[in-house]
Design a protein around this nucleic acid. Sequence first.
DNA 1: CCGATCCGGTGCATTATCTGCACCGGTCGT
DNA 2: ACGACCGGTGCAGATAATGCACCGGATCGG
Lengths: 300, 300
Amino acid sequence: MQYLETFRLIEAIARAGSIRKAAEDSNITASALNRRLARFEAEFGSQIFERLPRGVRLNPAGELVLQHYRAQRSDLGRVQSQVADLSGERRGHVAIACSQALLPFFLPQQIATYRNAHPGVTFAVNVRDREQAEAELSSFRSDLALVFEPMVLVDFAVLHAIPQPVCALFARDHPLAGRSELRLRDCLDHPHIAPAQKYGVRGLLDMAAKRVGRKVSPVVETESFELIRYYVMHERAVGFQIPIGLSSEKDTGLVFRPISGRDMSPGNLLLGQMRGRVLSVATSRFADQVALALAKMSDG
Amino acid sequence: MQYLETFRLIEAIARAGSIRKAAEDSNITASALNRRLARFEAEFGSQIFERLPRGVRLNPAGELVLQHYRAQRSDLGRVQSQVADLSGERRGHVAIACSQALLPFFLPQQIATYRNAHPGVTFAVNVRDREQAEAELSSFRSDLALVFEPMVLVDFAVLHAIPQPVCALFARDHPLAGRSELRLRDCLDHPHIAPAQKYGVRGLLDMAAKRVGRKVSPVVETESFELIRYYVMHERAVGFQIPIGLSSEKDTGLVFRPISGRDMSPGNLLLGQMRGRVLSVATSRFADQVALALAKMSDG
DNA sequence: CCGATCCGGTGCATTATCTGCACCGGTCGT
DNA sequence: ACGACCGGTGCAGATAATGCACCGGATCGG
């Protein structure tokens, strides 16, 4: 849309921190950009950037303007999606913020299924930890969030929730593989590899360990869930993850078992959107599909 | 705002029903307007008007676009109001849809009080019956509604409610003026003047009369509450209204008394806004003031 | 049945608006 | 003190919007 150009440029200025840098990024001259900004501020009735010696910075009014722009752009997307829906074909774009655990199996399959039915819909998948996920929704950078144990929940409206027990994973020939019930203390007695503290799985582990007077002391601590899965195949170590990120195929040599409910209660995997926002048709239908898949999974 | 011009023109076309008429109204040539529309439709990706032999008409996509524009314009107003509030002075505009009963005393006083504190805020008062009031909010033509017994309540979010008993009014020397408790049947036995059926007072009267096996058969039926107040001074007749539209001054020669609660329960006067909408600072503060005044009134 | 009328759409010259270039004054880091 | 950036501005050229005249088609009135 042509008429949103000025807002887009304003956003670029805010991001770059200076008119000249933003002008370069946007492939126009600083002069033109400066004038657009000046004209906008005149029409708007107030400055939206404070001028610093080394550049510019959004003032509170500018923050409001930018937020307005993002909301408006999002709503325009919703309108276009609904219009496309009127003519039968479904078009649109869905931006998802999700935890790492959704990457290997769940999301690829869900997206492929949806795109098979509606090839006109495109996707963006943004991997975010549970703290960033809500900010991602608030700033309209993502339409949906699918995260394990998110943190604040003020702008986050829950669409669907399923419990996910923390699972221990290890190689097939690991001593723990024979146990019928897996206790937390047994896992902690072995060398273990755990996610960094910002992740929900780790938070649940730390809490549960503290309750039984133990501590999680991983031999490897990482931000990569993928690394954890591969590492336990190389050292006789115990890893921790939630089942949605793990394959139930038997031929991988990887085994996973939920940790006994006596030691730790399951966390929640939440599907959510920004509170109060109207989603586009494409996004809304995709959310329905995901919710249904999650429900089936926790039933079956 | 310059960039909303195209939307404004689109709204003008929708209102006029033809490009040429809208062009005249907007003081540009039909050619220019035609091109703007064509350009917009091209950018938007879909026609928003269906072309008829005698003009154009919005199609469903156009309805969505126009609704988007109105929401966006309203939100921009909110942003500007908040920005003005940042700099200390409060500016803005408040559009109110209200029942007739609010016109003589309540609203003028409330608006004057608010404008005394904040002269930068302007007002629009749209008199609407209870059926139109909600549509008025949904289409962003009004920010607040203050109506007696509104009808549907799907887009209407109630901010405050006070009960208002239906009152009978008559001249000071009317036979009923001496009664301590006023029964509905006494009123109906006298010649009476009543509002038209679309008004809440009349709805309550009809219901109450039906319950006691009577009928409201007014000698004069009118849409004007003002006429009712003046008419009872000329014929020994009984009028009906809610107290908020009546003066408690003794020197007018007009007397009013609530009809006994045994015959009819009070209706509700509701202050509301469109559901889910964020109001501007000016509107929000004015709503607070009105709610407070209503609360005081029903206490005192 | 047919002309008058109104409609949306289009080619072309004009006008308004925006952009790019060169340059100014000021601040910060070295 | 000097160079590197920064935001802002005057001026000329580029770009986009507008107005005018006109077309083809549909409707309405007689």
